[in-house]
Amino acid sequence: MEIAENAALVVVDVQKGFEEVDFWGPRNHPGADDAIASLIDVWQATGRPVVFVRHDSVEPVSPLRPGYVGNEFKEYVERRRGKGGAGAELLVAKTVNSAFYGTPDLDAWLRAEGISQVVLAGIQTNMCVETTARMGGNLGYDVVVAYDATYTFDLVGPFGWRRSADEVAQASAVSLHGGGFARVVTTKEVVGAAG
């Protein structure tokens, strides 16, 4: 795998509100936060651009709503913001699933910077990470998803169908990879190619 010298790492919604287990329920990938931190560290050490995405929920009871502590980035992400040295950094705020529908305009910024490859990590695998990956693929970007640097939660769907966080994440990965929207790989593969 090749990671471009100017590939952007897009860190999706790594916010304190996702720690509220009573709201979200059981999650998968307990090592995801360490994986996300390692990706940010590699990107910053190599001077590559990092995009931090924050979900500003419009739902009044959401742990991700603006003005509530859960809207803030997790501590390890906040500590790393602004530490990229020569690497460009962008903060995108959004109210929907796709980071491409946020402020400022992510697509316009990537194109202005001459970036054609994006690596995605963050929360939730099957929601904002997947939607951003699909849209990035549709827009013509080379999209890479670091699967173990994402996580999600158990989910109930139609007809009373229940799926565990692992099942939901795997289905998301199969759809993205098998559908040609993104290459779904491990953090170790990404770090090895980017280091």
Rank of each mutant, 00 (worst) to 15 (best):
A121D: 01
A149R: 02
S172P: 05
R54Q: 15
S98M: 10
D22C: 01
P158R: 14
S98I: 10
Q124C: 09
A182K: 01
G179I: 09
R79I: 03
T150R: 02
G122T: 04
E59Q: 12
N28F: 02
D41S: 12
H55S: 09
V53P: 05
V145C: 05
A146T: 06
G114T: 03
E130A: 14
L176A: 00
A169N: 01
A86C: 00
G136Y: 10
S38R: 14
A45H: 12
T132D: 08
G192T: 08
P60R: 15
E75T: 12
G102E: 06
V10T: 05
A86N: 05
L9D: 04
G17Y: 08
E59T: 03
R80K: 11
D33S: 12
S98E: 11
Y147C: 00
T150K: 01
N97E: 15
L9R: 07
D13T: 08
G17H: 08
V191R: 07
G137N: 06
D56T: 00
G84H: 07
E167I: 02
A173K: 02
L106T: 02
S164G: 06
I123E: 08
A171E: 12
D166M: 07
V58F: 10
A45K: 03
K74M: 15
V129D: 14
V10E: 12
V118F: 11
T46R: 13
A165R: 07
A35Y: 00
R163S: 10
H177E: 13
V191I: 14
V12G: 00
L90F: 06
Y76L: 07
T125V: 01
L155V: 07
S116A: 13
R163H: 10
K74P: 02
L139C: 01
A169C: 08
E72C: 05
R183F: 01
P158C: 03
N126M: 07
A35F: 01
A93G: 01
P26M: 13
E20C: 05
Q44W: 04
W24P: 00
V50S: 08
T131F: 00
N71S: 09
V21R: 15
V143A: 05
G122Q: 11
V168W: 07
W24S: 06
G122I: 12
A99R: 12
Q44T: 03
D166L: 06
P30V: 14
G17S: 10
Y151S: 09
V144Y: 05
V144P: 05
R81W: 04
G85K: 07
G180R: 10
Q170D: 13
R162C: 05
G70E: 11
E2W: 03
T132A: 06
W43C: 08
F18N: 09
A194N: 07
E78Y: 02
R162K: 13
V129P: 11
A133W: 10
T150F: 06
G180S: 02
D107L: 03
K74L: 12
D56M: 04
D33E: 15
A112H: 11
S116E: 15
V174G: 10
E72V: 04
Y141D: 11
V77R: 05
D154S: 05
K94F: 07
P104D: 15
M127L: 14
A4I: 01
N138G: 09
A86P: 00
F23E: 02
K16H: 06
A149P: 07
A173N: 03
E72M: 14
S116L: 06
G84A: 10
E19K: 11
A108G: 04
